[in-house]
Amino acid sequence: MDILMVLFTLFAGITLSAQSAVNGTFSKGAGTIETALLTFLTGSIFLFIIILFFGEGDLSGIMNAPNWQLSGVFMGVFYLSFTIVAIPRIGVIATNLTTIVGQLVIGLIIDHFGWFGGIQIDLDGPRVLALAFMALALYFIYKGNKKTQTEAVS
């Protein structure tokens, strides 16, 4: 069962990279803001139908939730818009890999200080080493991308 679930989660990563590629393509015709708007609108409609049938939570609880929790929505909008800007310019791998690095670095910082009511996890030796390997990954992806671009030109 567990290995099945891990495969299922791999599939989640696949849909995310497919989304960024699809949106990058659509934005060439429609524009960045328009692509983000369409993604959010169709996502809302699809989710609304799913909640109607399978929702077990309490949507009206939104009204009582603290404002700082609700501000997550601006982050969601930033994320999608920035990805759409980057994809046509630096490609699918560079965008997704760089996004993941940004995500992990901030994640490590949030963990270290225990912000937003999460558990606190120290930035220990292995985690600092992980930061170094992420910097290395960024260096390689930048270099690799530059190489394919010069090849394409020549």
Partner: peptide, 9 residues
């Protein structure tokens, strides 16, 4: 792209 990831976190 880095900022996008930070926003996601």
């Amino acid at each position: 792209a880095l900022l996008a990831g930070a926003a996601l976190s």
